[in-house]
């Protein structure tokens, strides 16, 4: 987004002089809570329950970081940020880490002075249409009316896709996802386009979900991941390896149910032993306790468990693992080795 880049640049310019802090970890430990920049509400990724406790796929990563650093997965203060304010808030130190379905792009990583430390969800832009339209591929959408959120990268991706395929479309601009849902249902447009995870969440709320289909084409890359400030590599390491610990745990079959048992004594798999701290001193190298990963997995589960409980196929959102499967299952999630 142009505006956020402008504001973010302003933020960095304003703070570059006085902000050379490599202290985030010490700050978090002194404060006793992690300040996590989160979405104001995105189905499956971040939403408050009736008691005001946040839940979701991104939220779980925040809780995992809190469990790693503080040993308490609930010691998180969620700071809801809009898409305009998110990078400024991170640069200004209002949050320690930003886990707000933010796409890892070149300009954000370099120009805005952020460090994306990994990808917790590979998303991409897709299309949803009514089944009775009889369309099976996005290339058949010539002349369609398309509901599109203005001012987002999806708008540009849409124009690119239709131009490359040499077909025409008529945009119906909407401001928010909620408005897009309503317009699409009311028949103001034939096609609704946004990130596939958002389309799935939207489709799940329809009364007759089977009357709508998400087309197979994915027209953009949207790697969503946690971001931290430039210049604080120790803290970036903690966030990065917490994410990898979740994925490694899935790879080695460590779950919230069996983690305590596996951590009670060294197993015959040295990878698991190093992850859970029964062998080696990996936690100490990051300045954490040696059983940090045990806390993480015991409180939020491994990557696969988080996925299944928040956005997986048994939830209303019903996303398949797809690109987000582990590399061993043909996906893109390839956690670096604990060694």
């Amino acid at each position: 987004m142009k505006k956020s880049i402008f504001l973010g640049t302003l933020a960095v310019a304003g703070l570059a002089a006085g902000f050379a802090s490599a202290q985030t970890m010490a700050d978090v430990q002194a404060r006793g809570t992690l300040k996590c920049g989160s979405n104001e509400g995105l189905a499956g990724f971040a939403a408050p329950d009736a008691n005001g406790n946040w839940q979701g796929f991104d939220v779980s990563l925040c809780r995992a970081i809190a469990a790693a650093v503080l040993g308490d997965a609930q010691a998180v203060e969620f700071v809801p940020l809009t898409s305009q304010t998110r990078f400024t808030a991170l640069a200004a130190g209002e949050v320690d880490v930003l886990v707000r379905n933010s796409t890892w792009t070149f300009s954000r990583d370099t120009d805005l002075g952020l460090d994306f430390v990994g990808v917790n969800y590979y998303d991409g832009q897709g299309f949803m249409v009514r089944t009775d339209l009889g369309v099976s591929s996005a290339t058949e959408l010539d002349g369609a009316t398309v509901c599109i959120q203005t001012g987002t990268t999806t708008e540009l991706n849409l124009a690119d896709f239709f131009r490359v395929n040499n077909i025409s479309y008529e945009p119906v601009p909407v401001a928010t996802n909620a408005e897009g849902q309503q317009q699409y249902l009311a028949g103001a447009c034939d096609v609704y386009t946004t990130d596939v995870s958002g389309l799935a969440a939207t489709r799940a709320t329809f009364e007759n979900a089977s009357e709508h289909v998400i087309l197979p084409e994915i027209v953009s890359k949207e790697p969503l991941g946690p971001a931290v400030r430039h210049g604080d590599s120790e803290w970036g390491d903690v966030v990065r390896w917490t994410l990898y610990a979740l994925m490694n745990a899935e790879e080695y079959g460590v779950t919230s149910a069996n983690v305590r048992e596996l951590a009670s004594a060294p197993t015959n798999n040295p990878e698991i032993n190093r992850l859970l701290g029964t062998e080696g001193e990996l936690g100490a190298m990051m300045g954490l306790s040696n059983d940090w990963a045990v806390n993480v997995i015991a409180s939020v589960g491994n990557y696969g468990e988080i996925f299944e409980s928040n956005i997986g196929e048994n939830t209303p959102i019903g996303l398949a693992r797809g690109l987000n499967a582990l590399w061993t299952d043909g996906g893109l999630q390839y956690p670096m080795p604990f060694r």
Binding site: E40, G41, A43, A47, Q55, A178
Partner: peptide, 19 residues
């Protein structure tokens, strides 16, 4: 980013139950 009643309706809608 302040949570006025309309912002809260968005947050409530983001839960799986009330989307």
């Amino acid at each position: 980013g302040l949570r006025d009643p309309l912002g809260l309706t968005n947050a409530i809608r983001a839960t799986g139950e009330w989307n």
